[in-house]
Design a binder for these strands. Structure first.
Length: 306
DNA sequence: ACGCCTACCTGCTTGC
DNA sequence: TGCAAGCAGGTAGGCG
């Protein structure tokens, strides 16, 4: 469900609502949601009495910075949501982890499909350069604790909305890559935060066919894609995210960006630029939407293609 | 290192 | 109406 704009919206909501709150107890109702530390009783024990100081985001994870320097990471994956429930709110059968706050409210991790993951880590290392690919997950798997939050994101690429993420830097990361643009935009080690919705939207905006390969792009096209990625993400944040079926912010309200989407899940509707019907194809098992006229097909030099 | 594929889960929609 | 298949915003892990 949530990509960068949705996760950013949740993080900003939580910053307003739970910064300063103290966690008094934790119910883990689906053990596998908690990945570190384990077992869940230990996760709960380590959080009792912790104060949430600040809420932020890295990639598609919400970061709850605790007053003692530790960081809780919440990866929402497909259907995860973090919702602040006032005291007395009816229970939610899909709440997988419930954080009880000292003021009587609950911070609920709701997750129908149970793909979401929560971890608790020592602070530090968030802003350093990427380590060797694979090192992070291997180390986490093998670690006897304490493990730093920066290591969790060691394989992730840069934040697309950071000032330091320039077209030149984007081009350097794309250089030599033979993969298709659609798949590369979804690759979190190339760039962090773009998912299926915003990948399609960015390619439409940049007028690039999703099957184009990175190494086929001119410098001007790289600049166009760079601008487009940033624009669609910023617009998504401004509209509090795209709610296709069940995404909601921490206030439980859906975002307004779905109606602004140009191609995502608009198969058969007219292109906003040229009127041609939006097409849907599958790339790397992911549904992909684009305008066959505005986003010209790459030249195919081999193999039977649709 | 890269690309491709599967698994992880549940619920909703679609087509027969 | 029932039932099975297909689809969904993500990503770790295994394969070649």
């Amino acid at each position: 469900m949530p990509e960068l704009p949705e996760v950013e919206t949740v993080a900003r909501d939580l910053q307003r609502r739970v910064a300063g709150a103290v966690i008094t107890d934790v119910d883990v109702r689906w053990d596998r949601t908690v990945r570190h530390p384990e077992p869940p009783e230990r996760f709960a024990a380590e959080l009792r009495g912790a104060r949430i100081q600040r809420v932020g985001r890295r990639a598609k994870s919400v970061l709850l910075h605790l007053a003692d320097g530790r960081v809780m990471t919440v990866a929402l994956r497909m259907t995860g949501a973090l919702i602040v429930a006032p005291s007395g709110t009816p229970d939610d059968p899909y709440a997988r982890v419930v954080f009880h706050l000292a003021d009587g409210r609950q911070l609920r991790f709701r997750d129908v499909r149970k793909f979401g993951r929560i971890g608790l880590w020592e602070g530090g290392g968030l802003h350093r350069r990427a380590a060797a690919p694979g090192a992070a997950s291997r180390a986490v798997r093998e670690s006897r604790d304490p493990y730093r939050v920066g290591d969790v994101f060691a394989r992730h690429g840069p934040e697309p909305l950071a000032r330091s993420f320039t077209a030149g830097r984007f081009g350097a990361r794309l250089r030599g890559r033979t993969g298709r643009l659609k798949s590369l935009l979804l690759d979190q080690s190339l760039l962090a935060g773009v998912g299926n919705i915003y990948a399609d939207e960015a390619l439409w905006r940049a007028r690039l066919h999703p099957l184009r390969t990175a190494n086929s792009l001119s410098e001007a096209e790289v600049r166009r894609l760079h601008r487009a990625v940033r624009a669609v993400l910023r617009q998504g944040i401004a509209n509090r995210g795209s709610s296709i079926s069940d995404y909601v912010g921490a206030d439980g309200e859906p975002g307004d960006n779905a109606e602004q989407l140009a191609v995502y899940r608009r198969t058969g509707e007219p292109c906003l630029r040229c009127g041609r019907e939006i097409a849907r194809i599958v790339i790397g098992q992911r549904s992909t939407h684009f305008c066959p006229r505005c986003q010209r097909e790459p030249l195919l030099w081999e193999g039977p293609q649709a």
